[in-house]
C-alpha cells in the first residue's frame, strides 16, 4: 500500500537530502583513504582525491599489526556469536517447552537481565577477569597475576550469554507445535535429540536474525575491547587498533591511513548487512533497541 501525497517532489527532496547526509560521511571515509600524503587538510577542501593512491592501505599494514587485529576480531566475534546462539536456543527450549519447578522464576530473571545497561558492568567485569582465581599467575584468591587478561577469553567472556537472545528464542520456540515434539519423543528421542532435530531446524530464521545482531554487535564493540587491551595489547581488536592511530603526532598524514584501516574494518559488516538485511532489520524491529 503506497500513499501519494500532493507534493511528491517535496518528499523526494527531503528524503534525498537526508540520504545524502547519511551517505556522504561514508564516501568521505572512502575517498579520504585514497588521498596522498599532505592532501588531507589542504585548503580549500576537495571532496575527490587527486589520484587514487593505494599507499595508505600499505601504510595501514605497516603502522598496525592488521593480521593480529583481524584475527582477534574474527575469533572474538565467532566465539561470541556461536555461544550466544547455542546457549539461547538451549535455554529458550527449556523455558518454552519443558515443565519444571522454577521455570517462572528463571524466565523473570532472564527478562530482568535486559534492564541493566552495559556501563554498570565494565568495572566489575574487568576486576573479576583480572582477579580470576588460578588464571594468568593468580593465586586461589585471585591476586598476584594478570588473570584471564592473558588470553582471548577476556575479550569474549562478558558476552557469551545474552538475556535478549534467550528471550527471543523462547518466544519463537513456544510456537513450535507440541505435536512435533511429542511425536519425536514417542519415537524414543531424548530431549537433546528433540532440540537438535526439531527445535533447531524449526527456528532457523530467528536464529539467523539473532546471529546477525550478535555478529554486528560483537564486531563493532569498542569499550570493552579497549579496556581489555589496556591490560594486554595483544588483545586489540580492529576498532581498538585503528583508534590508536589518533595518537600519532602528524594527524594530517595519519588521517588517510586511518580511513584506509576503517574501510577495511567496516567492509565485512557492511557486505554482510547488505546480503542479509531483511534478517537484520527484523532483528531491530524485534529488539526495538539499538
Amino acid at each position: 500500500m503506497r500513499r501519494r501525497g500532493r507534493f511528491p517532489w517535496l518528499s523526494y527532496l527531503l528524503v534525498g537530502i537526508g540520504a545524502v547526509v547519511t551517505v556522504v560521511p561514508f564516501l568521505d571515509m572512502l575517498l579520504t583513504s585514497f588521498k596522498g600524503p599532505g592532501e588531507y587538510g589542504r585548503l580549500p577542501y576537495r571532496f575527490l582525491p587527486e589520484a587514487f593512491d593505494l599507499s595508505n592501505y600499505r601504510e595501514a599494514f605497516v603502522r598496525l599489526d592488521l593480521p593480529l587485529l583481524f584475527r582477534n576480531s574474527v575469533v572474538a566475534t565467532a566465539v561470541i556469536t556461536g555461544s550466544v546462539l547455542l546457549t539461547s536456543s538451549l535455554a529458550g527450549y527449556a523455558l518454552a517447552k519443558l515443565r519444571f519447578p522454577g521455570r517462572d522464576l528463571i524466565f523473570r530473571l532472564v527478562l530482568a537481565t535486559m534492564m541493566f545497561p552495559p556501563f554498570v558492568f565494565f568495572i566489575p567485569h574487568f576486576l573479576i577477569l583480572v582477579h580470576w582465581p588460578l588464571a594468568g599467575g593468580n593465586g586461589l584468591l585471585g591476586d598476584g597475576g594478570a588473570g584471564l587478561t592473558v588470553s582471548l577469553a577476556a575479550l569474549v567472556m562478558p558476552f557469551l550469554v545474552s538475556g535478549f537472545g534467550i528471550f527471543l528464542m523462547r518466544q519463537f520456540i513456544v510456537s513450535v507445535p507440541d505435536e512435533m515434539l511429542e511425536a519425536a519423543r514417542i519415537d524414543g528421542a531424548g530431549e537433546f535429540t528433540v532440540w537438535w532435530r526439531i527445535v533447531v531446524p524449526q527456528t532457523r530464521p530467528v536464529a539467523v536474525t539473532l546471529a546477525l545482531l550478535t555478529f554486528v554487535g560483537a564486531w563493532n564493540e569498542y569499550i570493552w575491547a579497549l579496556l581489555v587491551s589496556t591490560a594486554n595489547p595483544r588483545l586489540m581488536t580492529l576498532p581498538v587498533g585503528i583508534q590508536t592511530l589518533q595518537s600519532y603526532l602528524d594527524p594530517h598524514r595519519m588521517v588517510p591511513v586511518m580511513m584506509a584501516g576503517l574501510v577495511l574494518s567496516v567492509l565485512p559488516v557492511l557486505l554482510l548487512f547488505l546480503l542479509l538485511q531483511k534478517h537484520y532489520i527484523r532483528g531491530v524491529m524485534l529488539s526495538g533497541l539499538k
Binding site: W219, I242, M258
Partner: peptide, 25 residues
C-alpha cells in the same frame, strides 16, 4: 539510512571528527 547502525562507533566517530576539522568536509 540504515548504514550507520551497522558501522562501528570508531568509524563513525573518526569520520565525523575529521569532517569537523578545519580541513574537513
Amino acid at each position: 539510512y540504515f548504514l550507520p547502525i551497522v558501522t562501528t562507533v570508531v568509524a563513525v566517530g573518526n569520520v565525523w571528527k575529521y569532517m569537523y576539522e578545519p580541513g574537513g568536509l
